[in-house]
Amino acid sequence: MPITIADVAARAGVSKTTVSRVLNGKGEVGVRTADRVRAVIDALGYVPSARAVGLARGSTRVVGMLVPALTWPWMGEVLQGAADVVEAEGYGMLLFTCTHGDESMRRFASQVSAKSFDGLLVVEPEGTLDYITELHERGLPVILIDDRGHQPGFPSVRTTNESGARAAAAHLLAHGRKRPLVVTGLSRFGCTRERLAGFADGYADAGLPIDPALVVEGDFTFECGRVAVERLLAGGVPFDAVFAHNDLSAAGALQALRDAGRRVPDDVAVVGFDDLPLAGHTHPPLSSVRQPLWEMGAAAARTLIAHLAGTPLPDTPTVIPTTFTVRASTGAT
């Protein structure tokens, strides 16, 4: 059986409260008594519950992180950025997903009630923003990563979706592409609206407004990119470029073009968004707007941990700009 605090107290001839005080460094305990308790702890090999000690000290030194799922293509980069900072600062991390809907959120709420972590990093599971806002208003420090166009009442870290998409438009225009097919993400997401607006504005400013027939709503999957290209080719709708709202749907577009015998980039240039490792391994390699995913996760974690150390939370979002990576799908060699 595991050694308990009661075993330590009995062997040292003190109360459990005294053992607790020695462990958490609070309260007045005589030097000899404290030394005796520590000697018993060493002799018995007692390992106190980190959570119990943390609660006694008023801090768990644990950061919570709530995300929709781990299957999102870019989630690993964000998680790694946050985890690198959390670990470097000597904190632990509790990761929660929302893959089972309400049941997942009930389990998460029970950990909130148990005060299992000191602050929370969030990539918002859809429909939970009001609840997360309530947690913040009740005193839990919260940082939102990728606000997807929302304007939360608490700090966030985001990137420049609109200007990133405008950069994609400028790149395609510089290569003489005048009729781009746009495969968007889900229209209810703010990032989709921002990317569409930035790209459309770039073409409009060049005197080439986007043909509405060339804007196809997708869902960020490989299949949506493939199907969009196949349908337009089958319908005889001409286009000389594809701008997909993520790399996965861009990869689907590349597959459909290859299957149809269209040359990339000679016949059709293709641009994605995210610049995941996948982009360097498509055929041909994919030009893409780079989201600073690792940097966003790291910045959110730094902000939260700095706040836990006493720094006020920022009043405005932290914005980390996109960049553009040119590869062979638009003509780079």
Rank of each mutant, 00 (worst) to 15 (best):
A200M: 06
D201L: 11
Y203V: 02
A204F: 01
D205N: 05
A206V: 00
G207V: 03
L208V: 03
L208M: 10
P209C: 09
P209G: 14
P209V: 04
I210A: 13
I210K: 03
D211C: 06
D211W: 01
P212L: 09
V215E: 14
V216E: 08
E217M: 03
D219I: 10
D219F: 13
F220K: 01
F220N: 07
T221K: 08
T221R: 12
F222M: 05
F222R: 02
F222C: 02
F222P: 00
E223V: 03
E223C: 05
C224M: 06
G225A: 11
G225S: 08
G225R: 01
G225I: 00
R226Q: 12
A228D: 09
A228R: 00
V229A: 15
V229M: 08
E230L: 05
E230A: 15
E230F: 03
E230H: 08
E230T: 12
R231D: 15
L232F: 05
L233N: 07
A234C: 11
G236L: 06
G236T: 09
G236F: 10
G236C: 12
V237K: 10
P238A: 13
F239G: 07
D240K: 02
D240I: 04
D240V: 02
A241G: 13
V242H: 04
F243D: 03
A244F: 03
A244E: 07
H245Q: 14
N246K: 06
N246V: 09
D247E: 09
D247N: 11
L248P: 00
L248G: 02
L248M: 11
L248A: 13
S249I: 05
S249G: 14
G252L: 04
G252S: 08
A253P: 00
L254G: 12
L254W: 05
L254Q: 12
L254Y: 07
Q255H: 12
A256W: 01
L257E: 07
L257H: 04
R258I: 01
D259E: 15
G261T: 07
G261P: 02
R263K: 06
R263H: 09
R263G: 10
R263Y: 02
V264P: 05
V264R: 05
V264L: 11
P265D: 10
P265I: 00
D266V: 06
D266C: 07
D267L: 03
D267R: 00
V268S: 14
V268L: 11
A269R: 00
A269F: 08
A269Q: 06
V270M: 13
V270D: 15
V270C: 14
G272A: 08
G272R: 02
F273P: 00
D274V: 02
L276G: 13
P277V: 09
P277R: 06
A279V: 09
A279G: 14
G280P: 00
G280K: 04
H281W: 13
H281S: 15
T282A: 15
H283G: 08
H283S: 15
P284M: 01
P284S: 09
P285C: 09
L286S: 12
S287L: 07
S287Y: 06
V289G: 13
R290W: 04
R290H: 14
Q291E: 14
P292K: 04
P292Q: 05
L293H: 11
W294G: 15
W294A: 15
E295R: 11
E295M: 08
M296Q: 14
G297H: 07
G297F: 11
A298K: 03
A298R: 03
A298V: 06
A300V: 08
A300Q: 11
A301C: 11
R302Y: 08
T303L: 12
T303S: 12
L304A: 15
I305Q: 09
